[in-house]
Nucleic acid binder design. Structure first.
Lengths: 200, 200
DNA sequence: GTGTTGACACTTCTCAAGGAAGTGTCCAAT
DNA sequence: ATTGGACACTTCCTTGAGAAGTGTCAACAC
């Protein structure tokens, strides 16, 4: 079986996405030209179309790859502090905030499609990212901190994702400070029992 | 002193804003015409300009009035459950979510200015709304639940505002369910001490 | 078989020009 | 005070012609 066929295909795919990344980060998604993309990698337009059936598919793949990279970074941030929940959350959130703040692709993606396209992106795409990030974080906490109450865990994970997203949109003083606050909040939720009483 | 002068002025102001509300909710802010607005209320264009120096000022006042109405509703939701923090938060959040979900003005405001205008609105305006809502909620909790730890209070209020905004953007299954979850999370944060330990 | 080239229909962007309509201001009239 | 008209200026809308881009096809080259 021609195994190398697939590796060649995925290599081509990667190089196409690399070129697309650069172009999109530089001039925005709607300025991206399929012809330029093909010639930048050194293939014909048809080869490109055999890899990605449409320009939209390129954007989709680009988004997915970037999202996965982001999740890998988060995962690493979490794994770097397996003994300290607060530090783990703080690292993961801080990584996400600094990445979202600098990543040119994200901004270019958002400013790419005019008006209604932006809304659809902000809803459809970020909804998928939301679900993925939530699922990943939940799996991590379940595995790394199994003694945490499931209800508290679910609420904490949801809060972590939503608060992080909120700090991306409404940036606080600094990513580090935001990460600290989010981590503090998340830990308090995670370690809560739901049976607390108001102090005297 | 001509007290009634001012009342007439504010009455005119209210009627102008009412007419502007209808027009903006119907066709969007950029389709709003100053001439239509004036004639809809039955005054000349100049009278309108003496009340609002520019069209932008109309939008500003409209936004402010709507925000204040929203905050009043939130305040009432909180005050309706002075003995139950969870119920108070749930009522306030639920009110906000249903209001934001149905309010045609908010959507019209967001879809009004094309492209970059949307971003400026989403940042500048919602930042002001954020601060106001946060300040109000903090003042309420400080007064109604004085025994709550200040650090926990601040984190809880911040989480309440941010999570509510998050649920406006990324709507959950239903406003009621979202409100329940937000209230649960907020209460857990509010009643936390920051010294919790992970269960054995 | 896979990839390239050129051609194709169709849609979308890009200007340019002109006219229409809207904003904000001023002033005489009431 | 409020009005109506007139004003300069800007923005919007339409029209049309041309360029450029997308997605598909078939003939061709390796």
């Amino acid at each position: 079986m021609p195994r190398f066929r697939e590796t060649v295909r995925t290599l081509l795919r990667e190089r196409l996405l690399d070129a697309a990344y650069e172009a999109v980060a530089d001039r925005g998604f709607d300025k991206l030209r399929m012809a330029h993309l093909a010639s930048a990698v050194g293939v014909s337009r048809q080869t490109l179309y055999s890899e990605f059936p449409s320009k939209e598919a390129v954007g989709e793949a680009l988004f997915q790859r970037e999202l996965e990279r982001c999740l890998v970074g988060i995962q690493q941030g979490l794994d770097a502090h397996r003994d300290d929940l607060r530090a783990a959350v703080e690292a993961a959130v801080g990584f996400t905030l600094t990445l979202a703040g600098r990543n040119p692709l994200i901004k270019a993606m958002l400013t790419s499609t005019g008006e209604d396209g932006l809304l659809s992106y902000l809803t459809t795409r970020s909804a998928a990212a939301f679900d993925l990030a939530t699922a990943m974080a939940d799996a991590y906490v379940t595995e790394a901190w199994p003694t945490i109450d499931p209800v508290a865990r679910e609420l904490a994970v949801d809060a972590a994702v939503r608060l992080t997203a909120s700090h991306i949109v409404q940036a606080g003083p600094s990513p580090e400070e935001s990460a600290r606050r989010v981590a503090d909040t998340v830990v308090r939720v995670a370690l809560s029992t739901g049976r607390e009483r108001i102090p005297r």
